[in-house]
Amino acid sequence: MTDVVVTTDLTKRYGSVSALDSLNLTIPEGSIFGVIGPNGAGKTTLMRLLVDVLRPTSGSATVLGQHPRAGGKELRGRIGYLPGELHVEPGLSGTGHLNFWTSISPGDRRTVRRRAHAIAERLEIPLDRKAGKLSKGNKQKLGIVQAFMHDPELLILDEPTSGLDPLVQRTFLQLVGEARDEGATIFLSSHVLSEVEQVADLAVVLRSGRIVREASIEDLRATAVRHLRARLTATDLSVVTQRLTALAPGLDVSADGDDVLVSGLVEGRTDELVKALAQSTVADLVLAEPDLEESVLAMYEDKDVA
């Protein structure tokens, strides 16, 4: 299997600030590859370098075997790109946008237009409305259409599901699945772990322009950090404390009247912990995914670096 994207010491600096710092990344053909990281981690910079909107300060990248700049517009014709912040022509209708994108797409115009309208229909975009009057979600859908419409070999999607309601997110995930089944490679970013988790095979965690972790989704999930909050009734503080500190020493256990409250960060698989809690009567349990900033920080501080 060949690699669709390869970056070698890819670096992008703005003055003294490094947006990307010697990034080495390989995206195998046919994979769904996620990049996760807090805002400002360099996800968008990386993607914009790959479509030649930005030029690297040093290092290099190849996309579908070519350097983005040397590959030029022919190379970009093989890529579908959804920018992180989508801007559309406010006075132009959805159909007008599709017509323009069709006119600058490679391949047979009629086929591309038909595909575009088919995808737009699945996403239920009101195409006759002026783009300036569309909701954020509907604009984002237009962006998705233009990324997929010419059936590209590589999809580069920057925060693709932002602004989409859950139903549309499902349609989007179907589109991604179909594209992969047809042989496309998909590279997508998110600042929410669960979003990437749903669809990707492989992922990297980016922070301050560096890869802090590269792993399969399975491994990421296993080491993810979660917020735990539980209220236990009909139990004894000392018993609970003893039971839990062995499993997760960082947890805060306290008495609240007759109840016992447990709260704190949990890392890794939660199975044993939940079983331990269940030995008491669980009145309330929240096990929430923290924002990625926190989990990435946790990974970073634990020196859990690939």
Partner: peptide, 17 residues
Amino acid sequence: ESGMLELTLAHPVSRAQ
């Protein structure tokens, strides 16, 4: 500045063109 150029240039349109 409005951010529209990025999307157009990510398509098969060269900058000179």
